[in-house]
């Protein structure tokens, strides 16, 4: 821990301001709360929204886990942990169940999270309507008026054109029948974990200066039509080559020497745990 900077880098006033925005976000699930995003020593677009949430919440007694693409060891996760360690005294862990705050990019851990835990997600583009409307001024009105026809139309057009809804990750959800929300670039595989969860999900977009939240026990429904149900990524018939799991999100790995294609868990710490059982 370096003494020349304040605990958790930001000054106390900034941290308090961010916490107030978090409270508002929790009070209105799925609504994007604007906040005065601060510049950090880490690049905008590299998880600064998530980091600001983490920094504003963290204190002695917390245990932090940071993952990127499901992996604790990925360069960006390592870098963020190094930064938080530099300006706080909290221990880091790779075990999902031991952490009080988990910051993540692109995944929700496989181990179900509890009421004692907060999952902080890094968000590049918080606006779910951005794919149908580039102007912030317009999308804000669309949310206010619940004018969600354009995004439904987009899903419908995709069905007509390709016979499938072609959105990969960042699949939009309806929160408490009120706000359509971008779950951040998690795969569709993780969307159901948002619904009626035990833990608090916080979403931070640093560059776009927005915070939003899904508190525990919130209704979160991935957009779908009555006759065309929501569909997750399909790993039927595939299993992790290391731990043998068949119910996890799998990374596809291509061995250029043998031309062989195999799969392994994207959540590396879960994979290790299964192997050590």
């Amino acid at each position: 821990m370096i003494d020349s900077y304040n605990y958790a880098f930001l000054d106390e006033g900034s941290k308090r301001e961010i916490r107030r925005s978090i409270l508002k976000a929790v009070a209105i699930p799925g609504y994007q709360v604007p906040f005065g995003s601060r510049e950090l020593p880490i690049g905008r677009g590299w998880g600064t929204g998530g980091i600001q949430l983490t920094l504003s919440l963290i204190g002695p007694g917390d245990t932090l886990k940071v993952i990127d693409q499901g992996s604790d060891d990925s360069v960006n996760a390592v870098n963020i942990k190094k930064f938080v360690k530099m300006c706080t005294d909290v221990p880091c862990t790779i075990h999902t169940k031991d952490a009080t705050i988990i910051q993540t990019r692109h995944r929700i851990p496989e181990v179900p999270m509890t009421n004692e835990q907060i999952l902080v997600l890094q968000v590049p583009i918080p606006e779910p309507l951005r794919i149908v409307e580039p102007q912030e001024e317009v999308t804000k009105k669309m949310h206010a008026e619940m004018d969600y026809a354009p995004i439904w139309l987009q899903l419908y057009e995709s069905l007509i054109k390709y016979g499938k809804i072609t959105i990969g990750s960042e699949y939009p959800c309806m929160v408490e029948d009120r706000y359509i929300m971008n779950p951040s670039p998690i795969p569709k595989f993780d969307n159901p974990k948002l619904h009626n969860s035990q833990c608090l999900y916080l979403f931070g977009a640093g560059r776009e200066k927005k915070i939003y939240a899904i508190p525990p026990h919130t209704k979160v429904v991935s957009l779908a039509f009555d006759d065309i149900p929501f569909e997750r990524e399909d790993f039927a018939g595939k299993r992790c080559r290391l731990c043998g799991s068949t119910d996890t999100y799998l990374d596809e790995i291509f061995d250029s020497n043998t031309g062989e294609r195999y799969y392994q868990c994207s959540d590396t710490s879960y994979c290790k745990e299964v192997r050590s059982r």
């Binding site: 690049g43 905008r44 590299w46 990750s169 595989f189 596809e252 994207s266």
Partner: peptide, 18 residues
């Protein structure tokens, strides 16, 4: 520059989904 440089980060999960 932050957002452009973030393209160098791994995107394994989202790309798998795509």
């Amino acid at each position: 520059n932050g957002f452009i440089s973030h393209l160098k980060l791994p995107h394994y999960v989202t790309f798998q989904s795509k």
